[in-house]
Amino acid sequence: MAAIVYFAKQSEDPQVIVYKFGDDPAGLARTLTMDKASRTSQPGDGEADYTFLKASRKINAVYSESNTWPERGMSVS
């Protein structure tokens, strides 16, 4: 079974970035907050499920490759 997650940057300040994410690109209903210094994230709704982990890992992977935080993206597996 395939899994897909979409994400898009919602806001950014010097310490954190807030991303919206979900399995439907037209309705990104959840948020995660990424700490820029530690590169750790927290789910906005407190639910650290597979979709949250997939989005967080992809955001970190893109940052590792490009040294810039992505504006948007997706992960498929």
Rank of each mutant, 00 (worst) to 15 (best):
M1A: 12
A2W: 09
A2F: 12
A2K: 11
A2Y: 05
A3Q: 14
A3K: 14
I4P: 01
I4Y: 02
Y6M: 04
Y6Q: 00
F7D: 03
F7K: 01
A8N: 05
K9E: 12
Q10T: 12
S11H: 03
S11K: 04
S11V: 01
S11F: 09
S11Q: 04
E12M: 10
E12Q: 13
E12C: 05
D13P: 00
D13F: 01
P14H: 05
P14D: 10
P14S: 04
P14A: 09
Q15R: 12
Q15Y: 13
Q15S: 12
V16I: 14
V16W: 08
V16R: 02
I17A: 03
Y19G: 03
Y19P: 08
Y19S: 02
K20R: 15
F21H: 14
D23S: 14
D23T: 13
D24K: 09
D24H: 14
D24R: 01
D24G: 04
D24L: 09
P25H: 13
P25G: 05
A26W: 13
A26Y: 15
G27A: 15
G27H: 15
L28Q: 12
A29E: 10
A29K: 15
A29Q: 15
A29M: 15
T31N: 11
T31M: 07
T31C: 15
T31H: 15
L32Y: 06
L32G: 00
L32C: 01
T33E: 14
T33Q: 12
T33N: 03
T33K: 14
T33W: 07
M34R: 00
D35V: 02
D35L: 04
A37W: 00
A37N: 06
S38T: 14
S38K: 08
S38R: 11
R39A: 08
R39V: 02
T40H: 11
T40G: 05
S41K: 01
Q42N: 12
Q42L: 07
Q42I: 10
P43V: 05
P43D: 07
P43Q: 03
G44I: 10
G44P: 03
G46C: 03
E47L: 10
E47W: 08
A48L: 00
D49R: 11
D49K: 07
T51L: 14
F52N: 02
L53Q: 15
L53F: 10
K54V: 00
K54Y: 13
K54C: 12
K54R: 11
A55K: 11
A55R: 05
S56L: 01
S56P: 04
S56K: 15
R57F: 00
R57L: 06
R57H: 04
R57A: 13
R57K: 11
I59N: 09
N60H: 02
N60C: 13
N60T: 05
A61Y: 02
A61T: 09
A61C: 02
V62Y: 05
V62F: 06
V62R: 00
Y63E: 02
S64K: 08
S64V: 00
S64W: 08
E65H: 05
E65R: 11
E65M: 07
S66E: 07
N67T: 05
N67K: 12
N67E: 11
T68F: 12
W69G: 04
W69A: 06
W69N: 02
W69T: 03
P70G: 01
P70S: 08
P70H: 09
P70Q: 08
E71N: 10
E71C: 06
M74Q: 12
M74A: 11
M74R: 00
S75M: 06
S75R: 02
V76S: 06
V76F: 13
S77W: 10
S77E: 13
S77C: 06
S77Y: 11
